[in-house]
Design a protein around this nucleic acid. Structure first.
Length: 819
DNA sequence: CGCGGCCCTATTTTT
DNA sequence: TAGGGCCGCG
C-alpha cells in the first residue's frame, strides 16, 4: 500500500533519459502531445481551465505539465501543489511524473488527495482550531457512534432520528464549508430542530477528544486560512503553482480552499469535465467548474476533445446522450478511429435472463466467437447503477463458473477485526484516545459490560480525565469487585506497558514546530522506511496477542473467523513498510484504499460510480430501466438536477468502453422481493439510431425491444413531447406480459406513479412551515423548511427528507388524489 | 451475556 | 426478499 512512495522515489532517481531526449531544443516529453494537450502543458502562468473529455489524455497533460514546470525551472518540485480526489489517482500521477522527470530532482511535488495535503497542513496549525498536533482522524464509524451518544444525551429517540442521518447532514454542511454558527435559516430546523445544535455539540466533543472527521480536515484549513492571514500568505508564497484533478467533483469547502491558496498568483490549473460530474449527491458542485472563468478572469480555457479510447459509434452514442443536458460547457469529442462495432441494445424478459445472456456473451467474446476476436475476461466489465444489481451476476457467474471480480464492496480497513486492531494500536500510541478505549475495553469480553463502562464514564466526567485514567483510578480505589476489577487492572497495565514501549522507541514524536517562513516538512507521505528494525511490528503482534484479541477469533467457530485472522496477519504485514505505529495510523486513516488483487483473468463487476476513470475494451451496461436507471430516488430528491446527473452517469458508463458497449434492460425485475414490471430507460430513447444495433433475442418473447419501430418511424421523435402518451402508444411493441400487465395496472409501476405525483405542479412557496403534506412514497409529514424549490419535510414514517415541492401535496388534498 | 426472533428498511461512496 | 439492529428471554 505504501509501495508507490518507494516507486516514486526510485523513479525520480532514474537516469534523466526522458529529459535528455530533447529534440530541436525541446524536452522529449513534449513529443506525442496533440495541439490542445501541448497548450495545456505550456500555458504555465495564470489560471487555466482544462476541459478534458473522457479518454482525451488529461492525466498525460496534467503530469506532463508538472514535469514541464520543473524542467523549465519555473518552480521547484516542492513549490507545486497537485491535488486529486483519490489515492489511486494520486499514485498514478506520482508514478507518471516520476517517469517523466527521471533525473536527480531536488524534492518532490506536493501531490496527494485534498485530505492528505490538508492533514499535513493541519498538523502544523492544529492549535489555531483548538487541537493538538497529534489529533486523530475519525472514520465514519467513529463519527456515527459519537453522534449517537449525543443524540441520546439530547433525549431524542435514536430510532426516529438516526445518527447516520445526522452524520450525513453534518457532512453536507462541512462540504459546504458551514461551521455550526454559519448554519442558518431553514436548515437550523433540520433534524427535529436540533440539527445545528447537535452539530455544535459534536464539534465541541471532537475538540475535547482531540479528533477530527474527514470533513474537518478541509473545513479547519479553510477556517484557518480565513482567520489567519499570515498563515495563508505563507502558503500562497509556498505553493506557487497549483493543479487540480477532477475539478468538477470539488465541493464548496475544497473550492474555497483552492481559491484562497490561488488568489495571489492565480497560477492554478483545474482539469475537469462537467459531463462527468456524478458526485453532486455528496456535495460536489458542478457550479465550480462552470464558473471558473468568472472566478479567474482571463483564464485560458483549453478543451481536450480528441478521444483516444472509443470507436466512433460509442463516442456518438455517448455524445448524443449527454447532449440532453442543459447548462454544459460543451465539448465535441471526436476520434480518428473509423468503423468499429455499434453500441448494442437488447431487452430481456427479466433480470435473471439478462444476467444469463450477459454471461453467455462474455464467454462468447472470450472464446473469440464475436467479430472482435478473443477478448480476455479482464478486458470485460459490467457496470451497474446500484450495487444490489451485482447479485444477479454473481449468482449466475458462480453457477456457470465464470471468474469475476467485484470492485468496490467492503474495504479492508473497514472490516470489524481491522478496526478493532487499529483501536488497540491507537490506544497504545495515545492512551487518551477515548473512542479507541470504548471500542476495545470489552473486546474480547472482559466482563466489563454496560454497567462497568458507565461507571468509568461517569468517573471520567467527574474528575475530568480520560477513560483510561478513570479506569486506573477505579482500579486503584478497588471500586470494581472481583473478576471485572482484575480484568480492568490487567487491561490498564497492558496499555501502559505498550505505551511505554512506544515512547521508549521514539521519544520525540512531536511534530516540529512550524517555522515562519519556510515549509520544512516534506510533502511525501510517511513510511519510506530505511533502517527499520521492525520492533513496532513485533509490538503490534504482541498487542494483539496480549489483549486476547487473536485468541478471541481462534475460539470463534463462525465461518468468518479464519478469514478475520488472515486479515489480521495482513494488517501486521502492512506495518512492515512503516517506521512506527504512529506513522502507520496516520497513513491508514487517509488511505482507505481497497486495491484487491488485480491479478487473474476475471470479469469486473462494479458500479458506474466506481468505473469512473477506468476503461475496458468491452463494457456491459445492464438495468437501463426507468426508476432503476435513471434512479427514481435521484429524480425524486433533486428533480431535473438529479436526472441530469443520472444522464452523466450514463455518459460515463458508455465512454468507459473502447470497442464494444452493450446496453440492456429487463421487462420484469424483482424489487425488494416483489416482481415489478419495468419500462426501458428514457435514456435509451435518447440514443442515436444510426449508432445503435438492436439485438432481438431469438425465441424469448415476441418483438424484443420496441426501438426498431421507434427508430424507423418516429426517429428523433422520442425526445420531447408527452412521453407518457408515446409510451402508451408503443405498448404494442412491448409485446410482453410484463409490459401488458403494466398497462393494465396503470399506476402500479414507478414511471406512471411519478407522473401521478407530478400532477401537482406546486412550488415550495405554496407551502407553509408546519403544513401537513402527503407524499406518494413517504406518506404524511410536516413541512420543516423551504429551500428554493425544495421542501424539507419531516415524515411520520420516513423521517426527514428533502424533496421537490412538486412531489408533495397538502395533506387535505391527498384524499382526492388518484394515486 | 448470548442467542433467537421480530421489525424495519431498502442508491450511488471517497477521504 | 434479505440483512441489520433491537429487544426480551434464558
Amino acid at each position: 500500500m505504501n509501495g508507490f512512495d518507494d516507486a516514486y522515489e526510485g523513479a525520480l532517481s532514474l537516469s534523466a533519459r526522458a529529459m535528455m531526449a530533447a529534440r530541436g531544443g525541446e524536452p522529449g516529453y513534449l513529443e506525442g502531445l496533440n495541439a490542445a494537450q501541448r497548450e495545456a502543458v505550456e500555458t504555465l502562468d495564470g489560471p487555466v481551465l482544462m476541459l478534458a473529455g473522457a479518454g482525451t489524455g488529461k492525466t498525460k497533460a496534467l503530469t506532463t505539465r508538472i514535469a514541464h514546470l520543473i524542467h523549465t525551472g519555473r518552480a521547484r518540485p516542492n513549490e507545486i501543489l497537485a491535488v486529486t480526489f483519490t489515492n489511486k489517482a494520486a499514485r498514478e500521477m506520482k508514478e507518471r511524473v516520476g517517469r517523466l522527470l527521471g533525473g536527480a530532482i531536488e524534492g518532490v511535488p506536493w501531490l496527494g488527495t485534498f485530505h492528505s495535503v490538508c492533514v499535513k497542513l493541519l498538523r502544523r496549525h492544529a492549535e489555531l482550531v483548538g487541537l493538538k498536533a497529534n489529533f486523530t482522524i475519525l472514520d465514519t464509524d467513529d463519527q456515527v457512534r459519537l453522534l449517537k451518544q449525543l443524540i441520546l444525551a439530547a433525549n431524542m429517540d435514536e430510532k426516529r432520528w438516526p445518527a447516520r442521518q445526522l452524520a450525513g447532514l453534518i457532512d453536507g454542511w462541512k462540504n459546504r464549508a458551514l461551521t455550526p454558527e454559519r448554519v442558518r435559516g431553514a436548515e437550523t430546523a433540520a433534524f427535529n430542530n436540533r440539527g445545528s445544535e447537535l452539530y455544535a455539540a459534536y464539534q465541541e466533543r471532537l475538540v475535547t477528544l482531540n479528533a477530527v472527521d474527514f470533513g474537518d480536515l478541509l473545513l479547519h484549513m479553510v477556517t484557518i486560512f480565513q482567520t489567519h492571514a499570515d498563515v495563508l500568505a505563507q502558503y500562497q508564497r509556498w505553493f506557487r503553482y497549483i493543479l487540480v484533478d477532477e475539478y468538477q467533483d470539488t465541493n464548496v469547502a475544497q473550492y474555497l480552499w483552492l481559491r484562497l491558496l490561488a488568489q495571489g498568483h492565480r497560477n492554478i490549473c483545474c482539469v475537469g469535465d462537467d459531463d462527468q460530474s456524478i458526485y453532486g449527491w455528496r456535495g460536489a458542485e458542478v457550479g465550480n467548474i462552470l464558473r471558473f472563468e468568472k472566478d479567474f478572469p482571463g483564464a485560458a480555457v483549453i478543451r481536450l476533445e480528441q478521444n483516444y479510447r472509443s470507436t466512433e459509434h460509442i463516442l456518438a452514442a455517448a455524445s448524443r446522450l449527454i447532449s440532453g443536458n442543459e447548462g454544459r460547457l460543451g465539448k465535441t469529442l471526436w476520434t480518428e478511429a473509423r468503423g468499429g462495432e455499434k453500441v448494442r441494445l437488447i431487452g430481456h424478459w427479466d433480470g435473471e435472463e439478462e444476467a444469463r445472456w450477459i454471461g453467455e456473451e462474455i464467454e462468447a467474446l472470450a472464446a473469440g466467437r464475436r467479430a472482435l476476436g478473443p477478448v480476455r475476461l479482464s478486458d470485460q466489465a459490467i457496470l451497474v447503477r446500484a450495487s444490489h444489481q451485482m447479485r444477479a451476476f454473481e449468482d449466475r457467474f458462480l453457477s456457470i463458473g465464470l471468474p469475476y471480480r467485484v470492485i468496490g464492496g467492503p474495504r479492508f480497513y473497514e472490516r470489524l477485526e481491522i478496526r478493532d486492531a487499529m483501536a488497540y494500536f491507537r490506544l497504545a500510541v495515545s492512551p487518551e484516545d477515548d473512542l479507541a478505549f470504548e471500542r476495545v475495553i470489552n473486546t474480547p469480553k472482559r466482563g466489563l459490560g454496560d454497567k462497568a463502562q458507565a461507571r468509568i464514564q461517569s468517573l471520567a466526567r467527574e474528575t475530568g480525565v480520560g477513560l483510561l485514567e478513570a479506569a486506573r483510578l477505579m482500579v486503584a480505589e478497588g471500586e470494581l469487585s472481583g473478576k471485572a476489577g482484575g480484568q480492568l487492572r490487567q487491561f490498564v497495565e497492558a496499555v501502559d506497558r505498550w505505551h511505554a514501549e512506544i515512547r521508549a522507541a521514539s521519544p520525540a514524536t512531536a511534530v516540529t514546530a512550524a517555522e515562519d517562513d519556510e515549509l520544512l516538512i516534506e510533502p511525501e507521505e510517511g513510511g519510506i522506511a530505511p533502517a527499520n528494525d521492525h520492533s513496532h511490528v513485533r509490538l503490534a503482534e504482541r498487542i494483539l496477542e496480549e489483549s486476547g484479541y487473536v485468541e478471541m477469533w481462534l475460539n470463534d467457530k463462525t465461518p468468518e473467523a479464519p478469514g478475520r485472522l488472515e486479515n489480521l496477519k495482513e494488517l501486521v504485514k502492512a506495518l512492515e513498510q512503516f517506521d512506527n505505529l504512529q506513522g502507520f495510523l496516520e497513513h491508514v486513516a487517509l488511505i482507505m484504499d481497497n486495491d484487491r488483487d488485480e491479478s487473474g483473468d476475471k470479469v469486473s463487476i462494479m458500479t458506474l460510480h466506481g468505473a469512473k476513470g477506468l476503461e475496458f475494451p468491452v463494457v456491459f451496461l445492464p438495468g437501463w430501466e426507468d426508476g432503476l436507471f435513471p434512479s427514481q430516488r435521484a429524480m425524486d430528491e433533486t428533480g431535473q438536477k438529479g436526472l441530469e446527473e443520472e444522464r452523466r452517469l450514463g455518459y460515463v458508463g458508455i465512454t468507459r468502453a473502447e470497442r464494444l458497449c452493450t446496453i440492456s434492460f429487463a421487462g420484469n425485475r424483482r424489487v425488494y422481493g416483489q416482481w415489478q414490471s419495468q419500462l426501458p430507460s428514457r435514456f435509451i430513447d435518447e440514443l442515436p439510431a444510426a449508432d445503435v444495433e438492436v439485438l432481438t433475442p431469438p425465441g424469448l418473447y415476441g418483438g424484443g425491444f420496441g426501438a426498431a419501430g421507434a427508430y424507423g418511424g418516429a426517429g428523433a421523435g422520442f425526445s420531447g413531447g408527452s412521453r407518457l402518451e408515446e409510451r402508451a402508444g408503443r405498448a404494442d411493441v412491448y409485446n410482453s406480459p410484463g409490459w401488458k400487465r403494466l398497462q393494465a395496472q396503470g399506476g402500479q409501476s414507478a414511471a406512471p406513479a411519478r407522473r401521478g405525483a407530478q400532477v401537482f405542479d406546486a412550488d415550495a412557496e405554496d407551502f407553509e412551515i408546519g403544513e401537513r403534506v402527503f407524499h406518494k412514497k413517504f406518506g404524511y409529514g410536516r413541512v420543516v423548511a423551504t429551500e428554493g424549490d425544495k421542501l424539507v419535510v419531516d415524515f411520520e414514517k420516513a423521517g426527514e427528507k428533502k424533496l421537490l415541492a412538486s412531489f408533495v401535496v397538502p395533506a387535505a388534498q391527498a384524499g382526492e388524489v388518484p394515486f
